[in-house]
Amino acid sequence: MIELRGVTKAWPGGAGVQALDLTVPEGTCCALIGPSGCGKTTTLRLVNRLVEPDAGSIRIAGQDALAQDPVQLRRGIGYVIQEGGLFPHRRVGANVAVVPALLGWDAARTRARVEEVLALVGLDPAVYRDRWPHQLSGGERQRVGVARALAADPPVLLLDEPFGAVDPLRRAQLQEEVLALLKRLRKTVLLVTHDVQEAVRLGDSVALMRAGRLVQHAPPAAMLARPADGFAADFLGADRALTRLGLFRISDAARDAATVPGEALPEATTLRDALSAMLERGVRALPVTEGGSLSLEALLASR
């Protein structure tokens, strides 16, 4: 659990954070979004004290983060940044072992853990452990970055635009995979992104910031359905209703027993893609692979 209470940080040029209250419950992911300079990255860096607050309190897993030694605090928090921030002069295995080494783990324990976390992020340790960072693709570097953050098994992870440098075609898959992994491991995650689609897909809650203040903090579907103000509505985009449909699947909607002609869609298809298929085919109902059909009325009613 991450709790920020009345946290304030002023920068000379603006772009600070003002009286911010934010709670990320244990085992959930909060996506921080907002225009550049809104203070979302500052907020993230306040949690591991790469930025020191002027006022307020920060608690991580019930402990007062401001009372701890910042270096010790950071060793207990996973940190993933764009491109992974891997050390270019160390092999993948040594990069993953950075925090265990700082914590003084012995060689055997470190080695076993390195193999374990590399496998967790989908990289075969035998293949990747001895590679250099420059020999990896953007996506592989990012996976190593996540493995490195998980190495000492911290309860809390901070992800700063972690998928920004990954090839767009692979990005969605990597996002889903990493978040599913963090969810399975019951990690508490604070994620900074400037991409609304990424935020609503990955966040259990979305925190929208503007000029150092929290505008709205809500589950993605609720925020897309009811933006707090005109700024939130604009930022979420004129297509926010469609974005919201993308959060639900055919299996979430009421199904008709009637069979209709045409190519069937599996029920894992998002309602957004189902609506797109209806538009494309010029029909008001679609057959579903698992049986029955989805009507336009049922799709609209499922909002």
Partner: peptide, 25 residues
């Protein structure tokens, strides 16, 4: 800068960062 940031964020002290990261690079 990303490498320095990662070093700080993982909890290297200033001295560890200098000897283990900055000077080798």
């Amino acid at each position: 800068p990303a490498v320095r940031d990662a070093a700080d964020g993982m909890g290297l002290t200033a001295r560890q960062k200098l000897w283990q990261v900055e000077l080798p690079l």
